Amino acid sequence: MTQPVSDTLQALVGAALPHVAFDGWSPAAFRAAVADSGIDPALAATEAPRGALDLAVAFHRMGDAAMVEQLGAMDLSSMRFRDRVATAVRLRLELAEDREAVRRGTTLFALPQNAPLGAQLIWGTADAIWTALGDTSDDLNWYTKRATLSGVYSATVLYWLGDDSHEHADTWAFLDRRIDEVMQIEKLKAKMRETPVLKQFADIPNQIFARVRAPRTRRTDVPGQWPVSPEGPR
């Protein structure tokens, strides 16, 4: 599940995009979006208290939501699982029609003060993909799957931003190579579990992490952020 984006934020993002190419996700772009959309400035400030930064976040989450919606309408049952993941990543990038807005967002979230938020958004995309593909893991695998896919997605986005090949063919080839590398790691782990001599070494970290569980409140959690109940920390 992706975090919802209000109609007001969606309208502001749509009004901001023509300006982002020139001004980036900046205060100038935010002011222009408010003026062009006709939204009351007080309401805009309430919906986006951090200004253009909140619009960039909304733009990213709108892309995640569109990807999840389209994945839900696709029949992926005949595909290998690695191909389903590749399809999801490719779809996510293809839905980001405004590549300059993505480029400007990448620059914005690379700033030290925004880097944690950028990492959270990438994690959210990875979580949205795994959830849409039916992942039910509830242990350490919940984290490793999302961490691995976050790395693959981030690298692919950077490659895509500089790719001028026909229909981004080089990007999709790059994506396939990254996923193949991940699959090689999974095969190695499986081989360790099947080899008696190596299994004893593999069992040590398994015992250590056996009690690790996915966050109770999923979808909005990221590593290091845990929900707090009225009774105190969980």
Rank of each mutant, 00 (worst) to 15 (best):
P215I: 01
N206M: 12
A202S: 13
A210R: 13
E194Q: 15
R219A: 07
I208A: 07
R193N: 12
R213H: 15
R218C: 02
K187H: 11
F209P: 01
E194R: 15
R213P: 09
K191F: 11
V197D: 04
T195P: 05
M192G: 06
F209R: 04
K199P: 00
I185Q: 10
T217D: 11
K191T: 06
V197W: 08
V212L: 14
A190I: 00
I208W: 12
A202V: 09
I204A: 02
V212H: 08
P205C: 15
E194D: 15
P223E: 11
K199H: 08
P215K: 01
T195V: 14
R193C: 06
Q200S: 06
R193H: 13
D203V: 06
L198N: 05
V222W: 04
A202D: 15
A202C: 02
K187L: 06
R213A: 09
K189F: 08
I208M: 10
I185C: 08
R218I: 03
L188S: 11
E186C: 03
V222R: 08
A214W: 04
L198M: 13
E194P: 00
L198W: 14
F209D: 00
R216I: 08
V212F: 05
I204C: 00
R213F: 07
I204N: 01
L188G: 13
K191I: 01
P223M: 10
D221N: 11
R216A: 13
E194K: 14
K189S: 11
P196D: 05
Q200K: 10
T217M: 09
V197M: 08
M192C: 11
D221Y: 02
A214H: 04
P215D: 02
R218D: 02
P215G: 03
P215Y: 03
P205K: 15
V212Y: 05
K187I: 03
L198Q: 09
K187A: 15
A202E: 15
R218T: 08
K191H: 04
T217W: 04
I208G: 04
A210L: 01
T217Q: 12
I185H: 14
I185F: 14
R211K: 14
P215S: 01
R216Y: 04
L188D: 10
D221Q: 13
I208T: 02
K189N: 14
L188H: 10
P196F: 07
R211A: 13
M192P: 01
E194H: 07
I185P: 05
E186M: 10
P205S: 12
L188N: 07
R219H: 14
F209E: 02
M192V: 07
E186T: 09
K189L: 14
K189P: 00
Q200H: 00
N206A: 14
T220K: 12
A202L: 13
P205A: 12
P196I: 12
P223Q: 06
T195R: 11
A214D: 01
I185R: 13
A202R: 06
F201S: 12
D221V: 01
T195G: 05
P196C: 08
D221R: 09
D203L: 12
F201V: 11
K191V: 03
L188C: 03
P223G: 08
P223L: 05
I208H: 07
